[in-house]
Design a protein around this nucleic acid. Structure first.
Length: 605
RNA sequence: GGGGUCGUAGUUCAACUGGUUAGAGCACUGCCCUGUCACGGCAGAAGUUGCGAGUUCGAAUCUCGUCGACCCCGCCA
């Protein structure tokens, strides 16, 4: 047992703290106080010992002076980093030359006259003083230590405040918070489900919800009128910096509602989050843009509007040249789009090669570039084009001397995807993105369907419960790919942070949509039968949206990944380094579930 | 499934082109120090260079495989 640690003493009995470690100020001088917390730093001068006592909220310097209390001082000699201690003492002013202006409590200190060791601490796997960086691998393995750091503690506090603000706002707007099942039903379409085997019904599985979509619509049928839930969603897909297999949505649904009302409520939710989390007043209402506009000008349905670099059409200008690759691609239905990057003529050959391979990662087969100098177009392919073409290109890109124009020629989807990625990349390397700016943007009028080339069938762009755009509804049988939907996304700084739609509340229309998605009658009946049935019993018109809580907080705090806003996140391989999950289970457990794991074949077999 | 970056003491990093006993800061241990706040001083302990093969007289360094972390593509209604 650690020196000086007695089990008896280590329980605090009936004593409570009088203050947190970020509470005492000059006005408290003279008070008797009780503080408890962690030893953040110990400074031992042989005589007097200073300890920075830390809790969630901050630091307070506590002083052990042998001249004041010998026993306390002797105990403090053995204290080490992260020991948990109890102190009683008197708040006193610091000497005028020993103030610490870096600490809110820096004008005072507590002279200790009673001390108890509540717990000791082994040497740490990493230091918590944030003076040296720590690998994330280690932080995740000892997440409970990582969460003690002011950095993580502050994120958790902000997250809590923001979440509370959401509840408060939606409660005032008349929303009911209702929980929906975590053990629910697997449905086709969408992401891969996490499955949970049923012991009582062997061979059958629950699915964890990708979102409570159907349940919240059923709550509308149930007359709940306005529902919300801060709910966990699960999707068994590969992870990214901004994607975790379980994440939290602010799930909302409202009856007898319109897009305008959903926007108003959502803008209220978001602005209350910013107000409570950052004390920032977000400008309302948010900007709006149609999907078509966004794709035309930015090549993306989540454009970052904090910088320009708009795309332009160059198909007509650059067609019919001596450059056969362009001509051929256009003849096959391809397009040329481009963007002008100011002062880009100074890019080296290596930088351009890097940008070309970057475009390649995002699907482009090549990246054409034209450096603009006085009366000259420097480019490996300039020779294939007439002066007239090149001048028109310069005009189209509004290029000046010293700029560079990039062109990509391919199928429109590829062109847009690659140029949108290139646009973001150029903004990044050119430092064109202003800091501390929050650009919120509604994208509307998404297509209802997209075509899945592999499966040769229509897929929902949003989800199958999305209502078609009223004006386009008669195209269902004739021109489904050109139907717009009543769905909308909210984009912040080029990141999708919410997605929603007006829903289908008519069972015949819902059935029709399922059929267009090429789901056979049996599947529809098995997977969605109960839902279609519900729509037959007086389902009201309803609409909803689901902002992603983790992502919004990540962006609000300007963090590079979503893991930092989640207390116990998973690694890119979806495992928890701390608990080592997922992990094998016992034969007995598997037997109970009637699950057999096939033996792994040796690799060379 | 694919591409890329990385893995050295508890930790953060170093170790030149393959060449002596793999070094330093912090943490840790011991001693000293009564106004520090990333306190200071002296001394010490601490290494399967992720793991496994291979090349070589010789591997932290080169090659292959494997495990893990991160970023990206595919995927994510």
């Amino acid at each position: 047992m650690t020196k000086n640690l007695s089990f008896k003493e280590s329980f605090i009995q009936d004593k409570l703290r009088t203050h947190s470690c970020n509470q005492l100020r000059k006005s408290d001088i003279g008070k008797q106080v009780v503080l408890m917390g962690w030893v953040h730093h110990r400074r031992d001068h042989g005589g007097v010992i200073f300890i920075d006592l830390r809790d969630r909220d901050g630091l307070t310097q506590v002083v052990f002076n042998p001249a004041v209390n010998k026993q306390c001082h002797e105990k403090a000699e053995d204290f080490r980093n992260e020991y948990v201690i109890y102190i009683e003492g008197v708040v006193q002013p610091r000497p005028a030359d020993a103030l610490n202006t870096n600490l809110p409590t820096g004008e005072i200190e507590v002279m200790v006259h009673t001390v108890k060791l509540l717990n000791s601490c082994r040497p740490l796997p990493f230091q918590l003083d944030q003076t040296t960086p720590v690998s994330e691998e280690l932080r995740l393995t000892y997440r409970y230590l990582d969460l003690r750091t002011p950095y993580m503690a502050n994120i958790m506090k902000t997250r809590s405040k923001v979440t509370f603000a959401v509840r408060e706002y939606l409660d005032k707007q008349g929303f009911l918070e209702i929980e929906t099942p975590i053990l629910t039903k697997s449905t086709p379409e969408g992401a891969r489900d996490y499955l949970v085997p049923s012991r009582i019904n062997p061979g059958n599985f629950y699915a964890l919800p990708q979102s409570p979509q159907i349940m919240k619509q059923l709550l509308m049928v149930a007359g709940i009128d306005k529902y919300f839930q801060i709910c966990r969603c699960f999707r068994d897909e590969d992870l990214r910096a901004d994607r975790q297999p379980e994440f939290t949505q602010i799930d909302m649904e409202m009856s007898f509602s319109t897009q305008e009302e959903v926007f108003r409520i959502t803008e209220g939710v978001i602005s209350s989050m910013f107000k409570s989390g950052l004390n920032i007043d977000i400008k309302l209402p948010f900007t709006r843009m149609t999907y078509k506009e966004a794709m035309d000008i930015y090549g993306s349905d989540k454009p970052d509007l904090r910088f320009g670099l708009k795309l332009f059409q160059a198909t007509d200008i650059m067609n019919n040249s001596n450059f056969k690759i362009f001509n051929g691609t256009i003849a096959n239905g391809g397009v040329i789009k481009g963007l002008c990057y100011p002062n880009g003529a100074k890019f080296s050959r290596k930088e351009l090669d890097d940008l070309t391979s970057f475009a390649g990662i995002h699907g482009a087969k090549g990246l054409a570039w034209f450096k603009i100098s006085e009366d000259k177009f420097q480019s490996p392919i300039a020779k294939f084009f007439s002066d007239d073409q090149l001048n028109k290109l310069k005009n189209m890109g509004r290029a000046n001397t010293g700029d560079i124009i990039f062109l990509i020629c391919d199928k429109e989807t590829v062109v847009n995807q690659a140029l949108a990625a290139l646009r973001n990349q150029l903004a990044l390397i050119g430092n064109l993105i202003p800091e501390n700016q929050f650009n919120l943007l509604w994208i509307t009028e998404f297509p209802l369907f997209k075509y899945n080339e592999n499966e040769k069938r229509l897929e929902s762009e949003h989800h199958p419960f999305t209502a078609p755009f009223t004006e386009d509804i008669d195209k269902l049988d004739t021109d489904p790919l050109n139907i717009r939907s009543s769905s909308y996304d909210l984009v912040m700084n080029g990141c999708e942070i919410a997605s929603g739609s007006l829903r289908i509340h008519n069972f015949e229309l819902q059935q029709k949509i399922f059929e267009l998605l090429n789901l056979d009658k049996k599947t529809i009946q098995q997977q969605f039968g109960f839902f279609i049935e519900a729509l037959k019993y007086g389902a009201p018109p309803h609409a909803g949206i689901a902002p992603g809580l983790d992502r919004i907080i990540m962006l609000m705090l300007g963090l590079p990944n979503i893991r930092d806003v989640i207390a116990f996140p998973k690694t890119q391989k979806a495992s928890c380094l701390m608990s080592k999950s997922p992990s094998p289970v016992s034969e007995a457990q598997l037997k109970e579930l009637e699950i057999r794991i096939p033996k792994k074949k040796p690799k060379d077999a």
